[in-house]
Design a protein around this nucleic acid. Structure first.
Length: 650
DNA sequence: ATGGACCGTGTCCCGCACTC
DNA sequence: GAGTGCGGGACACGGTCCAT
């Protein structure tokens, strides 16, 4: 990368921006509006391009995400400053246009334009429609437990018959996950590792089979495949201290295996290639998001890049935190953490750990950042924890004389006393939980069957519907029940559908889909669909009765309910109908938690009126607002009902 | 009873002109 | 560059009327 190409990409970026402005003009916007659009992020955009020497044409999804996250951060900062100014003046203005939300919309518009005209990839940061959501998902970290689940899901994926051609690629992906999670490598850095990037003397003498290598160091540098962000991203990552013992062995084994192939065919020199092919970064991003979706449901905001974020935070804790903190948050043993510090900071510096200054620099260069600031502000979400941890554990020195003046004479051989010794005796967390280490189940070591138990019934249902778990017969039965229910409730012609049609094949699937879509729309962005954690009070004696009433209510809903728009209708014509409705209410109402209530219209029914339909709706209450969420609740009830076999016995 | 057409309401967001 | 008032479109929702 010479200065000339740097300049070129800077100009390209500017042209892109100008092109967008022209496009806005063509759309008929007035100049004043376009001006404010440009003002939303234009300067910062160009600044970031220049600062990080970015080439937009070469950017991966993760690079875009980084860039946009930074821009949105600048935007929020502008907002914060405005709030401060206002609070000085003593007014609390409700912002209208030039707000972070507004600028978020402009940036989204710009990126959409780039997607259409410059083949830019879709970006997760901007996909979420609500701006607030973004701030939450920004700080998501992958815990060792979650990472274990991710690997497990990947393992499941490679067990599927359709994946048979991809098994080797998926094994590579697993190693990429591992390396990124432990070392914080970017997607393209790990994806495009070359055999030549591996520094390992033992590889060259291929003598003993079963030795453990002393170390394997990855040299992260620019190469023709990889598109690195900056030249400063030239760095070396020692794997022996970054990985656990077992993980190191797994990686070593793979490298040995690939090296032998490489000796035969030196053209094929990418570490993770299978017959000259490596999974594309888009493909990896998509698989990763899908796997997380399987674990966490929709709208989780996790991506491959989250692994890098997690690595940064766990490294920060491991390098800078106290023993307690390390044990609580990471799966790294304390002994290993000490070893890491010795190696990275140097033994001498470690001896005076309190005062060494270059710790942050070590972390930043490990991550491939040119400045400490960059790591701290973009990647570290645990700074406050680290600060508290540090304060809590730092020595609290007080002069012996002061103590003696206040209290009685003090026994001490020195003039100073470290009070921390005494305060620490009432540690808040002297019994901390040791985090369980990540388990790396290999294909050979463990036989995998799709573990249905780890999926919720809802996930199994949806997986089955999408053909991912076609052999799950239980889910198949549930699906049929659901289709029957949604058809009976929603299809105006099929109100009289009999239960013996539950397993008939010619039910229309669209009714279920419609209900599912409606439920999704009513779900708040931070929720997974089955949000209604129906409340049961602990009182055991009441439980049996409550359960009985609930089953009764569900049976009534099953047989007599009608879903019209956002309302649940019950006819009240025959003599028994009135009692059924009462039963329904008494069974349902105790299930609803604090945020839901059952709203009743035309109840009790006026038996003389021609119209004798009771209309129920479920209302979600937030503060003083209420919202009709009937389809969502019905969908949830349906999920419950499909599992209750007693409802389906003839 | 059912479905279609229409309408009023409320909310959200956008565009524009304007001021400081 | 930040902020505001106003107008207006898109949309969801519910209600009403009417024909079948």
């Amino acid at each position: 990368v010479d200065a000339n190409t740097e300049e070129k990409s800077l100009i390209d970026a500017q042209l892109r921006l100008i092109h967008w402005l022209m496009h806005l003009k063509k759309r008929g916007l007035q100049l004043s509006t376009i001006e404010s659009y440009l003002g939303s992020f234009g300067k910062e955009f160009i600044f970031e391009i220049w600062l990080n020497k970015l080439d937009l044409k070469q950017q991966s999804i993760d690079d875009y995400e980084d860039l946009y996250r930074q821009l949105l951060k600048y935007s929020s900062e502008r907002d914060e400053k405005a709030v401060q100014r206002d609070s000085v003046k003593g007014k609390t203005s409700r912002k209208m246009h030039q707000s972070a939300e507004y600028r978020f919309g402009r940036l989204k518009d710009f990126h959409q334009f780039c997607i259409e005209n410059y083949d830019a990839p879709g970006v997760l940061v901007l996909q979420n429609s609500s701006f607030k959501h973004l701030q939450i998902c920004n700080a998501r970290l992958v815990s060792p437990l979650l990472f274990g689940k991710l690997l497990e899901k990947l393992e499941n994926l490679s067990q599927e018959p359709t994946a048979s051609e991809w098994v080797d690629h998926l094994s590579c992906l697993k190693l990429m996950y591992l390396l990124s999670y432990r070392t914080g490598l970017r997607l393209n850095e790990v994806r495009c590792l070359k055999i030549q990037d591996i520094i390992c003397p033992e590889l060259l003498y291929k003598e003993k089979e079963n030795t453990v290598f002393n170390n394997i160091t990855l040299h992260i540098q620019d190469n023709s495949y990889r598109r690195l962000k900056t030249r400063s991203a030239n760095r070396q990552i020692p794997l022996k201290i970054a990985l656990s013992e077992h993980e190191f062995l797994v990686v070593q084994r793979y490298i040995q295996h690939r090296y032998e192939q490489y000796l035969v065919n030196q053209q094929d020199d990418l570490l993770f290639s299978v017959n000259h092919r490596v999974l594309t970064d888009q493909c990896i991003s998509k698989i990763t998001v899908d796997l997380f979706s399987q674990i966490l449901g929709m709208h989780h905001g996790f991506s491959f890049h989250t692994l890098r974020h997690s690595a940064a935070n766990y490294l920060a804790i491991t390098l800078l935190g106290s023993k307690e903190m390390i044990k609580t948050y990471t799966d790294c043993p304390w002994v290993k953490a000490k070893k890491m510090r010795d190696l990275l900071f140097g033994m001498k510096a470690r001896a005076q750990e309190e005062i060494i200054q270059h710790k942050w620099q070590v972390l930043a260069s490990w991550m491939g950042h040119s400045s400490i600031e960059q790591t701290a502000s973009n990647y570290l979400h645990v700074l406050d924890l680290l600060a508290v941890d540090r304060i809590y554990n730092s020595p609290c020195i007080i002069s012996k004389k002061v103590l003696e003046q206040c209290f009685s004479p003090v026994k001490s051989s020195t003039d100073y006393i470290n009070l921390n010794r005494y305060t620490q005796q009432q540690k808040w967390f002297n019994s901390y939980q040791q985090t369980q280490p990540v388990t790396m189940a290999g294909r050979q070591e463990k036989k995998f069957s799709i573990e249905k138990s780890t999926l919720t019934p809802f996930q199994r249902l949806i997986s089955f519907r999408e053909g991912r778990l076609s052999e799950d017969t239980q889910a198949q039965e549930w699906m049929q029940r659901c289709q029957w229910m949604s058809t009976k409730w929603m299809d105006r012609q099929k109100f009289n559908l009999k239960t013996n049609y539950v397993y008939s094949k010619n039910l229309e699937e669209s009714w279920f889909d419609e209900l599912y879509e409606k439920a999704k729309k009513l779900t708040r962005p931070d929720e997974i669909i089955p949000l209604l954690d129906f409340h049961y009070k602990d009182d055991r004696q009441q439980d049996a009765l409550k359960e009985k009433n609930m089953v009764k209510a569900l049976k009534i809903l099953l047989l007599f309910g009608k879903l019209r728009k956002n309302f649940l209708h019950f006819q009240c014509r025959m003599k028994g109908d009135e009692q059924q409705i009462v039963n329904f209410i008494t069974g349902i109402e105790p299930m609803l938690g604090d945020h839901l209530y059952l709203e009743k219209q035309n109840y009790p029914v006026n038996l003389d009126a021609p119209e004798r339909t009771v209309k129920f709706s479920f209302q979600r209450v937030v503060g003083s607002n209420k919202k009709n969420v009937t389809p969502l609740v019905i969908f949830n009830l349906m999920l419950k009902m499909m599992q209750k076999d007693e409802l389906w016995i003839k």
